[in-house]
Write a protein that binds this DNA or RNA. Structure first.
Length: 260
DNA sequence: ATGACGTTTTTCAAACGA
């Protein structure tokens, strides 16, 4: 079973490359973040025509929004209202005879990494705290994917020293992420395939003139699994070439094959 | 080098992203 997670930065603005991704990489489950579309305006017919008619969508106007598209029917889908804000940042599907797949868009957190003066950062930290509690209580095989907006390790960013005070790589965020990880013994699938001392990114800013040559990336997107699924992932690839397609998202898709 | 770029909205400027 192939899962791809991708922060698409507006699904409607990028139908052409979503189609190309599905045709070129043939995912069984496609988890999108930052769809930026209300549910009643979601391009359902587009996914039906591409052979992924089973949809779980959770959107809102302008910002955020997640969607999971599947080739095969799934048992159920559900949302969690993190921080009770009514934001569209999560959707889960329970695969038939398989794990539950949670699709996340964690708050970016604004500019200042200080909960006292930055409400957005406080929101991010509360969101992460709730994810820890949720992880502690999980008792079924689970795959968690999405844009977690944190690059935890030194080689998850282009310059550890330069990004220590930049939101996404600050120690307080990394600590919070490690608390989530420990709460369920989550397996960091991307790092199972690429050692921690090698650079691994999934996002490159639009602002860099030549993003690939400069390579000032961060690993903001993640695929985690329950410990009971240890060894079930057989392939992982950051589809860096997709970041270079026409009118790209600033995130590259992350592909994982599971032998469940 | 705190510059740049891209998407959205009761739009033509501002908010947001990270």
């Amino acid at each position: 079973m192939r899962i791809i997670t991708w922060n698409i930065n507006s699904v409607r603005a990028r139908l052409d490359i979503v189609e190309k991704l599905i045709k070129d990489y043939d995912p069984d489950v496609l988890c999108l973040q930052e769809t930026k579309v209300q549910d009643h305006m979601f391009p359902e017919g587009f996914f039906q025509d591409l052979g992924m008619p089973h949809l779980a969508i959770h959107g809102q106007k302008s910002h955020h929004g997640v969607a999971t598209a599947a080739k095969q029917p799934f048992d159920e889908s559900f949302k969690i209202d993190w921080c009770s804000k009514g934001d569209a940042r999560h959707i889960a599907i329970k695969l038939k005879d398989g794990p539950t797949v949670h699709n996340f868009y964690v708050p970016a957190g604004g500019d200042e990494p200080d909960v006292e003066i930055n409400e957005k950062f406080a929101h991010k930290m509360q969101f992460l705290d709730e994810m820890t509690t949720w992880s502690e209580e999980l008792d079924t095989p689970t795959i968690m994917v999405g844009d977690l907006n944190i690059a935890p390790y030194e080689e998850d960013v282009w310059s550890h020293k330069k990004l220590l005070k930049v939101v996404s790589h600050t120690p307080v965020e990394v600590d919070a992420m490690m608390k989530i990880k420990d709460a369920h013994d989550w397996q960091d699938i991307m790092r199972d395939f690429v050692p921690k001392d090698e650079k691994l990114f999934s996002w490159w800013s639009y602002r860099a003139k030549d993003w690939s040559a400069a390579d000032k990336g961060r690993r903001l997107d993640h695929v985690w699994t329950s410990p009971s699924l240890k060894g079930k992932a057989v392939k992982m690839e950051v589809l860096r070439n997709v970041r270079g397609w026409v009118k790209p998202s600033d995130h590259a898709p992350v592909l994982v094959d599971f032998d469940l």
